[in-house]
């Protein structure tokens, strides 16, 4: 009798586990588009991707970002930061130096300098650590864009101009507060990124270029520098109220000699500069320089 009870118990347990622990998914397996509302006054995320031209898995991370940009059109602001061992210049064709002091500072602050790459951050949110694997980018983006109101807490409007005579950039940023926010320090960071830089990229992902390195890889959204220093500038040290507007202007930022103005973008983001949400990005925006 005892054995019968035990076998019955084991059978019941097995049935419970077997019948409740298996989700078979049928096609379609992927979502095409549908990342909520599209428009200017929508919440956007800053997606910082730590990468390197010697990193064999980094091209796949770039592809993951492009996939997210399809699902969330104009709501993802990528900033690709070349850092650490995998970004060091090596003999040609890996002799180009993508690194920046701004990128190095950001990597050091968030622990990416010696981390195995690729890694990334979404809005600099610390969810048991700032750094994410590329496979986690989508979930982290969704938690911001799908779980939070589509209307941003602070709306950023950018305008920029380029003076070809002295190769300098001017940027005006207008921050409009859309909801009451707690007392604290608020910073704005303004960065320059460049796309369409054709240089070599290591790769072993069999789904990209058959797992071979790509000598004419198009590097996009590469961080070039900070217009108002790595950690930006404080624009408020108080509670913010719905309807408040702040303006910041920057000028005479000289671009690098090999930067192509047509491929430059200005990225701006506002973030909490103290308190429990210290460093968390509230809203991001981008604009083509030309």
């Amino acid at each position: 009798m005892k054995k019968i009870v035990i076998f019955a118990f084991a059978g019941l347990l097995s049935f419970m586990v077997l019948s409740t622990s298996c989700d078979k998914v049928d096609a379609p397996y992927m979502t095409i588009g549908g990342g909520g509302v599209v428009g200017d006054t929508v919440r956007k995320v800053l997606l910082e991707d730590f990468t390197g031209h010697l990193c064999v898995n980094c091209a796949a991370a770039h592809l993951a970002i492009e996939g997210l940009q399809v699902v969330y059109p104009k709501r993802i602001i990528p900033m690709v930061i070349h850092v650490g061992f995998f970004a060091k210049p090596k003999p040609a064709p890996y002799d180009y130096d993508f690194r920046t002091s701004t990128g190095d500072d950001i990597a050091a602050q968030f622990g990416a300098t010696a981390a195995p790459l690729p890694k990334g951050m979404v809005n600099r949110i610390d969810d048991g650590g700032y750094l994410l694997d590329p496979a986690d980018y989508a979930t982290a983006v969704s938690l911001v864009l799908d779980s939070m109101p589509s209307k941003p807490d602070i709306f950023i409007e950018l305008s920029s101009s380029f003076n070809s005579t002295d190769s300098t950039i001017s940027v005006d940023a207008k921050m409009s507060v859309f909801k009451n926010m707690p007392a604290g320090k608020y910073n704005i960071s303004v960065m320059v990124v460049e796309s369409k830089i054709v240089e070599a990229q290591k790769n072993t992902n069999p789904n990209i270029n058959n797992g071979k390195e790509i000598l004419d890889y198009e590097h996009n959204d590469v961080l070039r520098g900070a217009i108002n220093t790595t950690w930006g500038e404080e624009f408020a040290d108080a509670a913010l109220t719905d309807g408040q507007v702040f303006n910041k202007s920057y000028s005479k930022y000289k671009i690098g000699s090999d930067w192509k103005p047509d491929d430059l973008k200005i990225i701006a983001f506002v973030y909490y500069a103290d308190g429990p949400n210290d460093k968390v990005v509230i809203q991001a925006e981008e604009i083509h320089l030309k």
Partner: peptide, 9 residues
């Protein structure tokens, strides 16, 4: 994940 329809179990 917003990209994929993933099995949770």
């Amino acid at each position: 994940n917003p990209l994929y329809n993933l099995p949770e179990n």
